[in-house]
Design a protein around this nucleic acid. Structure first.
Length: 504
RNA sequence: GCCGCGUUGGUCAAUCGGUUAAGACGCAUCCCUUUCACGGAUGAAUGAGGGGUUCGAUUCCCCUACGCGGUACCA
């Protein structure tokens, strides 16, 4: 690579950031970092009608949570600002005019209503080589007429003039050589009547001005790529053009089609990275973060949705991804979103990371359930005991609540039928012996327990379940003596006594 | 409709002309654990269809089917 790579993510701030968007960020970021380049965040807010309050802040927060910090952004301007297209408005006009002067673009005076009418009445209507001669534009009007219309303040757009019968070729880093016939591409609007550029003009101008070297974007942009390529040729020369890669889509799990927010609502999994509340209707969409995902797992999962390193490794840290990512191993076909697999990645990361790494979140979720934990050390021990049975951070509260308060329900039904006086006596003796035990520690507790059982000639197996039920309330959980150790002498006795009472 | 891009188990996927077509998730069975989970073992399950090219195609080419994306003064 001769130049320092510069890649960008250019979202339109219109709502929550969807996992497809995060994956696009990720691939851009990984490539930039791998090659010692920069990752730029540019806000594409040229559509003033679609402004959504808070959407831009949400993007920053999401990127931050994911650990994908931009090197340059509206919040952290570099040498190529401003980083919001709405603030770059004056820049674009000049390029549009330049294209007009060179006959590569033209003024179009057709109103949106007129065009809509044409689209309704003419099947397959496109504003292109075939139809532009019959429409109201500077190609069909005389210079004098055009001048008058402009002077009178009649609204107009500037459209690119697609050449006739030419081929536009380019190399996509994922898909290889691509060819488009210019006659079949329509004359896209470059500058809107409000003076704002459309995406097509703005991307090209900004990517040039910001010295972007690689454009990785979603597959939905592939069909407009020829317009962008042509603009690059006209404006800056093909040699200046960034390299392109069109990323496969993330598809809905059932059926086909691009994954949408609705699929998440319908199937019960998150689609956005973080919670998003639409300010227009107050509608709330839950995110991976709030569902209990670790950013490490979320990123890991997303990276593997459309890419792999060719080995059997699946668990990658961000650092490893930076090292191993390669754009030419990105797939062409879309991947169906698999929530079960996402959770698997999370359980892997829960096991891999030190529990202290996510202890604050677990503590907060326990607090939400009215359990306030005083000693972090104790929580840490508990978390280490239960982490294997948690695939989401939000599972911890349910798995560990009984350590901190007496169980809400006691499953007596699973011990009652086989309960007898002999067992009753056993537990009474157990308490007496445990009172004298010097070290309150699980191995010691277990040994003592078994000794007493042997003396009383009761099978240990007959007694373990009752103990568990008394301490936990149910049949699951970590090793019962580990639990007793954490609970401590007094609490263990209290629970056994309470259990005995319930069983008698 | 038109243009473009895709298509290996239920899902994610390896393979870059020769393999018993990996591995993972999920599922099933078993082992471990005197519980549940973790872990371990085993198993069921895959090249859309049709033509070529080739000694040999999952792999290269063509056609068909299917799917998706685009077809806005949205990005």
């Amino acid at each position: 690579m001769d130049k320092k790579p510069r890649l960008r993510f250019a979202p339109s701030p219109t709502g929550g950031l969807h996992i497809g968007g995060v994956r696009t960020v990720l691939y851009n970021y990984l490539f930039a970092k791998q090659h010692g380049g920069d990752f730029v965040l540019r806000i594409e807010d040229t559509d003033q009608g679609r402004f959504v309050a808070g959407a831009e802040e949400y993007i920053y927060e999401t990127l931050h949570w994911c650990g994908l910090e931009p090197d340059e952004s509206p919040l952290k301007p570099g040498l190529f600002g401003p980083y919001r297209q709405s603030e770059r408005k004056p820049l674009y006009r000049n390029y549009a005019d330049q294209l007009i002067d060179r006959g590569l673009a033209y003024y179009a005076f057709d109103t949106p209503e007129e065009l809509e009418h044409r689209r309704k009445t003419t099947p397959n209507f496109q504003y292109n080589v075939a139809t532009r001669a019959g429409l109201r534009n500077s190609l069909t009007l005389t210079d004098q007429e055009v001048k008058i219309l402009i002077e009178k303040g009649i609204p107009y757009t500037i459209r690119i003039r697609m050449p006739e019968n030419e081929e536009i070729r380019f190399t996509d880093m994922i898909r290889g050589e691509l060819v488009f016939q210019t006659s079949l591409v329509d004359d896209k609007v470059l500058l809107k009547a409000d003076g704002m550029p459309t995406y097509h003009l703005a991307v090209v101008v900004d990517d040039f001005l910001m010295e972007i070297t690689h454009v990785f974007r979603g597959e939905e942009w592939l069909s407009s790529a020829p317009v962008h390529i042509l603009l690059w040729k006209h404006l800056y020369g093909e040699d200046k053009m960034p390299r392109w890669a069109h990323l496969p889509l993330i598809l809905k799990p059932d059926g086909n089609g691009k994954l949408s927010k609705r699929d998440g609502d319908r199937l019960g999994f998150p689609v956005f990275a973080m919670d998003w509340t639409d300010p227009r209707n107050g509608e709330k969409t839950t995110g991976f973060k709030e569902r209990g995902f670790l950013p490490e797992a979320f990123i890991n999962f997303l990276a593997l949705q459309g890419w792999n390193d060719g080995t059997e490794q699946e668990v990658f840290s961000l650092e490893e991804l930076i090292l191993k990512f390669s754009i030419d191993r990105v797939h062409k076909g879309g991947a169906k979103f698999n929530y079960e697999k996402a959770k698997w990645f999370n359980s892997e990361w829960i096991k891999k990371l030190p529990v202290t790494h996510y202890l604050p979140q677990v503590k907060a979720s326990l607090e939400q359930q009215g359990i306030s934990v005083k000693k972090d050390d104790q929580l840490k021990t508990v978390m280490e005991l239960v982490r294997d049975r948690c695939s989401l951070l939000s599972d911890f509260a349910g798995q560990s609540a009984f350590f901190f308060r007496y169980p809400a329900t006691i499953d007596l039904a699973s011990v009652q039928p086989k309960w007898n006086e002999q067992k009753n006596l056993f537990f009474a003796e157990l308490i007496r012996t445990y009172e004298l035990i010097p070290r309150w520690e699980h191995e010691e507790l277990e040994r003592t327990f078994k000794e007493i059982a042997a003396v009383n000639e009761i099978k240990t197996g007959e007694l373990m379940l009752p103990l568990r039920i008394m301490l936990v309330g149910q049949k699951s959980g970590p090793g019962v003596f580990h639990i007793a150790e954490v609970l401590g002498r007094k609490e263990t006795f209290d629970r056994i006594r309470k259990g005995l009472q319930l069983l008698s």
